[in-house]
Design a protein around this nucleic acid. Structure first.
Lengths: 213, 213
DNA sequence: CGCTTTCGCTACGGGTCGTAGCGTAACTGT
DNA sequence: ACAGTTACGCTACGACCCGTAGCGAAAGCG
């Protein structure tokens, strides 16, 4: 999750953990004020009260820094057990929407995703520190729904994995598209409508498995 | 759709239309090779065989130029009348996925969306030249389904508009998220699964309108 | 107290930005 | 044919940011 943890040796002066936190916070502040393209590492260093060289010793460049800074915003994501699959979906959607309502997330996330289209290592970093953490919510919610009997217990592991991937892309994609492209609020009404369509689609497809879903 | 069409006066030397096409094509080529952040206007001008100053006379900056260059990729989007709502949805999904499979679209689209989070004018430009054109596909497909009797004819115009917005964000969001974040192919199998869930959700919600969907 | 690593600071070459200035090219109206 | 108007190509420029190197000082450890 951190820069790269270069096998911390027992000797020598240790790296300042406070500097890491200050740099990531300064990065988010700069994202709010300047956006992605105008954000500069020299400015981040000044905001954090840190020399520019220190920043380059910990992160390879702008991309990796912003990924780590944005990833911390998703730490608060939890799966709320509200008793029903519908309530759980709606809760996750609203949590995700609340994060995307913050300007530092809006400005930073798309920027790193744009660069990840050409950078395999960056894409893997995003997957590990942001995407996989989100996908686990879908896995957990699905497991709980199966325990409640709202969904059939388990299928072929391969089709189950594809179903999780599909639901994840639908939920996360819809929220991101709503917030960042359509630029309209993902409020409770909208989350309810999304949940209704999604739930009918999932349970209906599960009850009528004429194919793989 | 063009730069800004500054009220073309009848006098003086006219702007070269060939230069516009060359610049936009060069922009797409640069997006493929360099990605979003490494793309430079000087490089685009050289590729297009055009002076850098000419480029600045037509576009205010990198953002607007890339929006216009990417927007042309969506010109080919059509609604295929395949006889059923399911087939129409699947066709649109596959068309959209085909565009997002091109590297110039992958590299450019997220970059401009990231900047649009802070730039109202840019966001409006994207909406007019890209997003609205996509949303019309949803409107058309819905109208055809209503004509076939697959969907109830018409509701309150306000809830109808919200339904269109929701479906649009779900479809476009899922395809974008699948291609650019999960970075997995949106092939026929995946499109079929997405269509199945979506269709069940839409028709089910329409038949059981306990709320607004 | 030596050893090691980090830190802050300064300085640097290289690249991009966006603009200004100038002479030339293209097209229009009389 | 000629003057008027606009677009074009080219060069040059200051400003900014990048990423790195070198230095002395600070902060840990044995």
């Amino acid at each position: 999750m951190q820069s790269r943890t270069p096998a911390p040796r027992a000797t020598g002066r240790p790296r300042s953990a406070a500097a890491d936190a200050a740099i990531l916070a300064a990065t988010r502040a700069a994202l709010v004020e300047l956006g992605w393209s105008r954000l500069t590492l020299g400015d981040v260093a000044t905001r954090a009260g840190v020399a520019k060289t220190t920043l380059y010793r910990r992160w390879a460049g702008k991309h990796e820094l912003v990924v780590d800074a944005v990833a911390e915003l998703f730490d608060e994501l939890r799966v709320p057990d509200r008793g029903s699959l519908a309530a759980d979906i709606e809760g996750v959607v609203l949590q995700f929407a609340a994060i995307l309502a913050r300007p530092e997330a809006r400005n930073g996330l798309m920027g790193v995703v744009a660069e990840a289209a050409r950078d395999d290592a960056l894409r893997e970093r995003i997957r590990g520190s942001i995407v996989e953490r989100q996908k686990r919510l879908v896995v957990e919610g699905r497991a709980r729904a199966q325990a409640r009997g709202e969904l059939p217990p388990e299928e072929d592991p391969r089709t189950a994995a594809r179903t999780v991937d599909l639901i994840f892309d639908m939920v996360a994609g819809a929220v991101v598209h709503r917030c960042l492209v359509s630029s309209q609020p993902a409020d409770a009404d909208w989350a309810g409508s999304l949940t209704r369509v999604l739930l009918l689609g999932i349970t209906g497809a599960a009850q009528n498995p004429a194919g793989s879903v």
